[in-house]
Structures are given as structure tokens and as C-alpha cells.
Design a protein around this nucleic acid. Sequence first.
DNA 1: AAAATAAGTCAATATGACTGACGTAAATTT
DNA 2: AAATTTACGTCAGTCATATTGACTTATTTT
Lengths: 148, 148
Amino acid sequence: MPIDLIELLFFAYRDFTSDPDTILAEFGFGRAHHRVLHFVSRNPGLRVTDLLGILRITKQSLARVLKQLIDEGYILQEPGPVDRRERLLTTTALGQDLAERLTRLQARRIQRALAAMPEGSHEIARQFLYHMIDPDQRGDVARLIEHS
Amino acid sequence: MPIDLIELLFFAYRDFTSDPDTILAEFGFGRAHHRVLHFVSRNPGLRVTDLLGILRITKQSLARVLKQLIDEGYILQEPGPVDRRERLLTTTALGQDLAERLTRLQARRIQRALAAMPEGSHEIARQFLYHMIDPDQRGDVARLIEHS
DNA sequence: AAAATAAGTCAATATGACTGACGTAAATTT
DNA sequence: AAATTTACGTCAGTCATATTGACTTATTTT
């Protein structure tokens, strides 16, 4: 049994999320804000429903953090041009800056890890993580990541 | 920038933790209980201090979940034979069963992922996750995982 | 016109984490 | 032998993130 990977996933994820936490704390934000900011930043024009599906949280859980991010000028909302019920989400310059800063931090940790490893490790890591996702969710995730 | 891996880590970890969550809910336990039960199960005779170091939570956060696990008969405490201030933690048969059931579930997901991948992927995944850990923490983690 | 959808909101609650302080027993240091 | 440190437990209060379930409004679809 791959108990080593079970435990390593716990420790790797713990430290992976700790990098942004430090910066987020300065802004009075938490991990929930980070996740929202990240996916809006990478997918401008995302709808609230899409975000709920990605994060797998309830509307009420999202509402609080999203409202904060909007009120404090990190995220913008505008009605969909076709369907005006929709609120399309985009980052402001301020939000984009913060999102990119957090992404750079996490990317650096990953790059350092890969730099210590054999050629082709990025691809193997990608495949491994991809296959850890529920089969019926993989398509959605692949589509989301593609245009990154 | 390896943004794909940043996002895949999020989705992989989300689904990885969702397997145990279902079972834990039946027992009235959460993830915090799982983590405690797991590390005690894999490291019989663990001290409370060790557990605090591994989980990186405060004594007060640990206290509630540990107390529940003890009260409900999943974990046993006994004074250290050398240093009687210590409370060495072990699982009961009940606790061991639950821990193994949860581990099997997570192991299955990992094994299925690796089965879909080239030979040697386990080793690459292990290295990747290991290098994602803070350098100054790697020794402790390696030591912990070794006797698994 | 009726039904469905996207989004927002209300109230109440649970879980897992935190800080800071204090107490006790046992071991170690001075 | 006394003082200090360590391991553990506990009290009180707080915060962040999540939940369920119900209800409203605006808009689009049937």
C-alpha cells in the first residue's frame, strides 16, 4: 500500500498552502479568498455558478468571501451581456496583482521541487495529480486548466 | 509557470480527502479526527507532543478531537514506562479497524492513479511530494514515513 | 402565462482552528 | 533539596470556513 504517498500528500499540501497564507493574513484574507481570487483571475468572466462548481462549496459560503473581495476592490462583477441574470466576475488591477503574487509564490515552490528531479518529472507529476481526481470530474478540470 | 500543477494539487487534494469524509461522517468524526487516528495508528506509542509537531496545531485544537477519540474507544492512552509524564497513544482494535479502512480507501485511489501511468511513476510522485515539503521539515517527515 | 434558472440573502449551526493563561505531576538542573 | 523545565490537561473567548434550509428578485426559457 502506498502509505508513503498518503502521508506525503498531507505534508506537501500543508506546506504548499502555507506560502500564500502569510501574505493573505496581511490583507485580512484567508484561504477561501485565495481560491476565489485565483480562479477568477485565471478565468475572467467566470460566473458565480461556475465558481460554486469548481470550489464545491455552497452559495452561502462563497457569498461572504466574494462580497469581501468585491467590497475591497479586488474583484468586479458585471451583468452578462447575453444573459443579464449572470454576474460575470473579473479581477481589478489590484486583484490581479495579488493573485499573481500568490501564484508566483506557489509556482516557485513547485519549480524548486521539479528542479531537484529527473527530466520529465513535471509531466509525471501532472499525470499523477490528474488521475487522483474523480474520473467524472477530470473533463471539467482539464477544460479549466487548458486555457492557462 | 507550472500553473497546471498548482490547480491540479487543489483538485487532487479535494478528491483525495473526500473519500474518508464520507465514512467519517457516519461516525460523527471529521478530518481532524482522521489525521489524529491515522498518525497514532501508524506510530503506536506516539506522544501528544509528537502529534502536535506532526499536525502543526495547538494543544487546544488537538485536545477536543483526541478526547473524543479516547472517550469513544478508538484511542488508548498510557503513561510512558520511563517518563511517566508522557501519555503514549495507541489505537484500540476499533480504532485500528477504522484507521485501516480509511487508509485502504485512500490507497486505492492512489493505486488506481499509478496503474494508469508509466513504470516508476510511484517513485517520481514520491520525490515530487517530498520536495514540496519545507526543506527543514523533510528530515522529520522522512523519519516518520520510514517505519511505515 | 408558467416554470426554470442565476444570483442574493436570512437565520441558525458545526467544525476546526486560534490566543493566552493557568494548573499539576514528574523529571531535570542547579 | 530547591528551583526550573517539561508533558500534559484545561478554561474562556474568539475567528474562519463551512453547512442546511428557506425565501426573494430578476430574467430567461418553455
